[in-house]
Amino acid sequence: HLHLEEFISRIMEAEPPEIYLMEDMKKPFTEASMMMSLTNLADKELVLMISWAKKIPGFLELSLADQIHLLKCCWLEILMLGLMWRSVDHPGKLIFSPDFKLNREEGQCVEGIMEIFDMLLAATSRFRELKLRREEYVCLKAMILLNSSEYLCTSSPQTAEELESRNKMLRLLDSVIDALVWAISKLGLTTQQQTLRLGHLTMLLSHIRHMSNKGMDHLSTMKRKNVVLVYDLLLEMLDANT
């Protein structure tokens, strides 16, 4: 029941701090060294992502099963959107962290990753064209968290508790959508331009879902081929998707 302005300011405050890889980077990368750096960073970011989700107003009121479900579905989309946000002012580069920046050619050393880098760079360019604002970015990220297709489209609640949690989740999604509409309304656009912007921004979410699916397949393959040792939280999240 928070006012939209307060809701946005709460999700802005929930933003995770800047994270550093803090590794001695030996260039040129090998397939194993780059995958190790990427997975180490992802593992660190995942811990912060859980803390971020807990700060989204209303998230902790969902059942624990739903919290787990939503996070395990969206984690790679959230990582990718964060990466795009950090990279938006750096054309041609992917800013994984302030001490781990890559260009597309550096992806050559990992089989199959350049295709994903190219998709990420293209989607980042689109956000650059749209001049994505921070307020919009945090709303899109919260929408990804709540937009599990498995949850919304395939499962139906069986118990009263499940039904209650699902209803809470839908109300929370309403709040995030309202917040995004509100953020767009502050940009001084005409009503038609606002509607178009909302459409363009939300349509990008399907591209992010696609990239995440590609990324998940890629990481599973790298793990299966023993290119990289996946462990801890990242292993748990990857296993949840395969």
Binding site: P17, K44, V47, L48, I50, S51, K54, L64, A65, Q67, I68, L71, K72, D232, L233, E236, M237, A240
Partner: peptide
């Protein structure tokens, strides 16, 4: 219980009030 076992770390982090920065 199965959720707890399957998602041990995730479950722990969701329930834990310890600063995630310490855990990271």
């Amino acid at each position: 219980t199965s959720l707890k076992e399957k998602h041990k770390i995730l479950h722990q982090l969701l329930q834990n009030s310890t600063s995630p920065v310490d855990l990271a």
